[in-house]
Simulated assay, not measured.
Amino acid sequence: MKVNSIISVLALSATAFASPKPKGHKHLPTTTIAGVEVVDTQIVRDAHDLIKKFPDFLYWHSLRTWLLGAATINANETLKAQVDLEAHALGTILHDLGWDMSPDSPWVTHENRFEVDGALGAVRFIKEHKSYKSCVWTDARLERIFDGIALHGTVGIHPFKNIDSKWITTSVGFDGVNFQPPEVPADKFDSVVAEYPKESFQKGAIDTFTWMAATKPDATYNTFIEPFGTAFVPGYNATGHRSFDRIVAGYTPQ
């Protein structure tokens, strides 16, 4: 009996050791920004420092995305214990690296739609960080961040993804133009927007989308950026580049 008991204890210990650590907030350092408790690991601080170099409208948008999402997650203890809060922080803070309009940006390509540039950039940032360990930032964990960023400009897919990808994309949606999301606690929304104002966001977003259509048009056809090119970029014409045009080519209605 003693031998069996010892074996049982060892088996239970091995199972506990092999089980993944909970992804919630309890084992991570935190700080408070604009009244919202957020993860405060070195890699998150460094991501925050990175986006401080962007224009205010983009920096503030990225911070609001993180903070509004975190505030909503914090309001639900079950959700807070389930979401990978460090991955959520990095995915939201870095989601718009593809908006970087600076010359020779290390994040922006000519061929990729901006969401993919942001997703690839976030994964590269993590892998190049001094703290990076593949056993911590597994391929599965990185894929969740990639998907959360890559899908944020596409409607209708992310609600069916895993919880981490879903909440990165959902948090981006909390910082739209001219509305206050009902999911975000009102007091937290007010404190975040007071610290990181939204007044310049609409113009900044329109200017950025117009720049994308002008400088990388092939990456904007069949995306929500296309109408900005049609409206604001002389000579921009998506006709012939759209899926619609390829599908109906040669078709004669009966």
Rank of each mutant, 00 (worst) to 15 (best):
H61L: 06
T72D: 02
E37V: 02
D100I: 06
A81L: 00
K53E: 15
A119W: 07
G98H: 12
N112E: 15
R64V: 08
D100T: 10
M101E: 09
L50P: 04
A70S: 15
T31I: 00
A34T: 05
T72A: 09
A122R: 11
G69S: 08
V44S: 00
H88Q: 13
K53M: 09
W60V: 00
L90I: 15
D100A: 10
A87Y: 12
G121A: 10
G91N: 14
G118I: 12
T78P: 00
H48W: 01
K80R: 14
D96L: 08
H48E: 01
R64W: 08
A87F: 12
K52A: 13
H27Q: 11
V44R: 01
V39M: 03
T65H: 03
H88T: 09
L79R: 04
W99D: 06
L63E: 12
R64T: 09
F54R: 12
P55F: 07
V123R: 13
V116P: 03
K80F: 05
E86A: 07
N74T: 03
Q82F: 00
T41N: 03
A47C: 02
D96H: 10
F114C: 12
G98M: 06
W107F: 15
T32Y: 00
I51V: 15
D84W: 13
D100E: 08
W66E: 07
I33E: 09
D56T: 14
T41F: 00
I73Y: 03
V36W: 02
P106Q: 08
E111M: 12
H61W: 07
A89D: 04
D46K: 02
G91C: 13
I73C: 01
L28Q: 06
N76R: 07
A34R: 12
L97C: 07
E111V: 14
D104H: 14
